[in-house]
Design a binder for these strands. Structure first.
Lengths: 227, 227
DNA sequence: AGACGTTTGTGAACCCATGCACAAAGTTGA
DNA sequence: TCAACTTTGTGCATGGGTTCACAAACGTCT
C-alpha cells in the first residue's frame, strides 16, 4: 500500500556504510542454504549489535517477520535494491600501475552490478595491453568513450600529483562518482561524490593504537612528568 | 611544565582518523617552503572546518600562536609524535597476489615510519621471488621470523576464504595490529586491532549515492505511489 | 607603552548515532 | 481457540562529534 521507503525516506550515511556488509553476509548464508535469520544471529556474524541491525533495516522497510526473523533471500534482494545494485554500474579505472592492475583483475570488483568498461593510462608502454578483456587507452579518449558507452563511476589509481588533473578530466567528462586511491584531497564541484581509500592513513591509525597499547602496557619510560 | 597531553589525554577516534590528512598536507606545505599556517588556511587545504581543525589539534597540546597561526615544521612533528610515527613500524604482508604485489611496491607504503620486513604466500610459484628486496616466504615461517625480527603490523591481502586462517596465524604469532583487505569479517581476541579496507563496499556506497542523484534528478518513473 | 587587529583554544548548543527496553505482532502447540 | 513464546520495530535516553561564537593571548604599529 505504501511506497518503497528506500525511495522516500532518508537513509543515514552510517547505515548505508553497513549495508554492504549485511549484504555480503546474507549472500554467504544463502550459499550455505540458510533460509532465515534472526537479527541476533545476523548481527553476531557481522559484528554489530542486534538493535543496530534492526534499526538499520527498518530504514529500508519492514521485511522481517516477528517471532521468526528475516527471509535471507528477500532481505538480500531488498538491500541490493536500496543500494542500487539491481542496476548496472559501468566503472572506469585511471592509472594502470601496480594498483590499477590489481584493481582491474580484482575478482570482487566484478561482483554484482559493477562492470569494468574502461582502463586509462597515458604511459605508451601500456598502450593496447588488455586486462580482463579491456584495452588500456590514453586518458584523452575518455570523453569520447563516455559519450558512446557511459561511465558511472571513475576510479583514480594514479600517483598523488596526477590525481587532481585526472579528477578534473573525469568531472569534465560528466562523471559524478569518484573513488580515489591517491593520497590527495580532491576539490570537486558540488554534486560530485568522492570517496577516498588510503593505505597509509589506515596504517597510521593502526600505528597510533599500537603505540597506545605499548605505552599502556607498563612502558614507564614515558611517565616523565608528575604533578 | 605539564606532561605531553598526547600521552595523558584521550584523543577521540574521529580526530585520530583526520591527523594523517593534516600531516600529509603539512608535509606538502613544508616542501613548498611554507613556514606558518593559520587554522583557516590549513582547514581549507584539507577540506574541514577551521573550528574542527583547532579542536582536533587542541587534543595534542597547544602548539599554535594566537594572532599568528601554527609553525608548519613544529606541528608536523607533533602530529607525527602523536601518531607514533617517530618510531619504526615493521610491516608484514600476507598474500602476494595482484593486490599484495601492488601494496608491497606502493611507494606511499614506505613513507615515514613504515618498513616492509616480511612477505608471505604459500604458492610455490612465488617462492623466493623478491619485491623491494624482500623474499616471499611460506606463511609457516611467520612465527619464527617474528621471533627474530618482530613484526608490528600484519596486512592481509589474501582472498576472503583464507583471511580468517591467516588472521589466526598472525594473532598466534603475537601480532596485534592487522590491516585487512579481504572482504571478510575477522574475529579476533580482545586487544587485537583490526581495520578493514574494502573496495566493493566503497563502490556500493558510491552506487547508492549515484542512484539517489539519478532518482532525484527528475526521474519520475519511481514516483509510483501517492497518498 | 598602549591601542588595535588577528588568531587560537574552548565552553556551550546542536545534531547524529548507538544502545536499551518494551509493546506489537507473529508463530507454535495444546 | 487461546495461551505462551519468540522476535521485530521503535520511542527514549545516552554519548560523541561537529559547529558556533567569544574571551584570552599574541604580534604590530604608532
Amino acid at each position: 500500500m505504501s511506497a518503497d521507503p528506500a525511495l522516500r525516506r532518508e537513509i543515514p550515511d552510517a547505515t548505508v556504510a553497513r549495508l554492504p556488509e549485511y549484504l555480503r553476509t546474507l549472500s554467504r548464508l544463502a550459499e550455505d542454504g540458510v533460509l532465515s535469520v534472526s537479527s541476533e544471529e545476523l548481527a553476531a556474524e557481522v559484528g554489530v549489535r542486534s538493535a543496530q541491525l534492526r534499526k538499520d533495516l527498518s530504514h529500508l522497510g519492514s521485511y522481517g517477520v516477528r517471532g521468526v526473523g528475516y527471509d535471507v533471500e528477500t532481505l538480500a534482494l531488498e538491500i541490493s535494491r536500496a543500494l542500487g545494485l539491481t542496476e548496472d554500474w559501468p566503472v572506469a579505472i585511471v592509472g594502470m600501475g601496480n594498483l590499477g592492475h590489481a584493481l582491474a583483475s580484482y575478482s570482487g570488483f566484478v561482483t554484482k552490478g559493477f562492470r569494468i568498461v574502461g582502463l586509462y593510462d597515458d604511459d605508451p608502454a601500456l598502450a593496447d595491453e588488455r586486462i580482463v578483456g579491456v584495452a588500456i587507452r590514453p586518458l584523452a579518449e575518455l570523453t569520447e568513450h563516455h559519450a558512446v558507452d557511459p561511465i558511472a563511476i571513475g576510479v583514480i589509481a594514479t600517483p598523488a600529483p596526477a590525481a587532481q588533473a585526472v579528477c578534473d578530466a573525469l568531472v569534465g567528462a560528466g562523471i559524478s562518482s569518484i573513488l580515489n586511491f591517491a593520497p590527495a584531497v580532491l576539490s570537486v564541484p558540488s554534486g560530485v561524490d568522492v570517496r577516498r581509500v588510503d593505505l597509509s592513513t589506515e596504517l597510521q591509525i593502526l600505528a597510533f593504537h599500537a603505540q597506545r597499547k605499548s605505552l599502556a602496557a607498563g612502558d614507564l619510560r614515558s611517565a616523565v612528568a608528575a604533578p
